[in-house]
Write a protein that binds this DNA or RNA. Structure first.
Lengths: 140, 140
DNA sequence: TTGAATGCAAAAAATTTGCATATTG
DNA sequence: CAATATGCAAATTTTTTGCATTCAA
């Protein structure tokens, strides 16, 4: 389950140092855009990895279900470890503020979605938009 | 409340035919990427509106809280009317399948987020990622 | 009037793709 | 060996910006 090599091979893919480094970088960052991940990889001692390889590595790791991503702000997918399930994001449409809530807030949602469609929702890191307390008051 | 002109003026903004047409197009489409919206606007009889204006109009309408957007697939924000609250999206990480569930599935989530942070969540059209029934079985 | 919004064209970003070469299994 | 990934550079795609001009209030 945690054997990256085996999981990759199971899908006809291969284990490469780049993929290991990208995965490690995502874990270190917690959250990161492809660019931030590329920077993190570049800073791990090894040689730099071109953006295209980072994108391809993230795709592969995502197909494996090891990483996932969300869109916290407009233009930037943010990747994270799939098992680093901690919270979900709240993004204010008014001021851009980003907050977090514990996953248990969505327990019922997960249950219902499973019952109704057999869908295994991964709400961790999901981004929910709306208005934060202050913007809410302003727009009376 | 439904007077577009007044709402715009309240924020020092102005009512223009482009903004009216963009808003109308979003309503007609239900969901749409900026590009699709631009096409829809172009097809409403009037003259074409450049992409930059569509982007600026969407920003303005979003600031007003009249429209919102979600990221259903990787690279394409999908805009919708804020009050066209109908469902939320389920996106399969494995095969890309996109399903919908009624908003009531998230009632508890909305309540909790409000209680805990005073955040007015707009789960309508939110995108929740995970695995659909079949991909779930495959990945045993 | 007068500042906000538009149209266009050019500039930035952010991704993706082609292909020869290097690597993994 | 054979097939998959990488590295680079070039090509796309998507969004943003600068500015002169037009238009709403």
């Amino acid at each position: 389950m945690s054997d990256l090599g085996a999981r990759l091979r199971a899908q006809g893919k291969r284990l490469t140092s780049q993929r290991e480094r990208v995965l490690a970088a995502v874990g270190r960052l917690g959250h990161g855009t492809p660019e931030e991940i590329a920077d993190a990889v570049a800073g791990d001692g090894g040689s730099a990895v071109p953006a295209s390889t980072v994108y391809r590595a993230l795709d592969a790791l995502q197909e494996l279900g090891l990483v996932g991503h969300t869109h916290v702000d407009h233009r930037a997918p943010s990747y994270h470890l799939a098992d680093h399930a901690t919270h979900l994001h709240l993004v204010c449409r008014g001021c851009g503020w980003v907050g977090e809530v514990d996953l248990d807030a969505a327990d019922e949602l997960v249950t219902r979605v499973d019952e109704r469609l057999g869908f295994a929702a991964d709400v961790s890191h999901a981004a929910i938009h709306g208005l934060c307390r202050s913007c809410r008051e302003k727009s009376s």
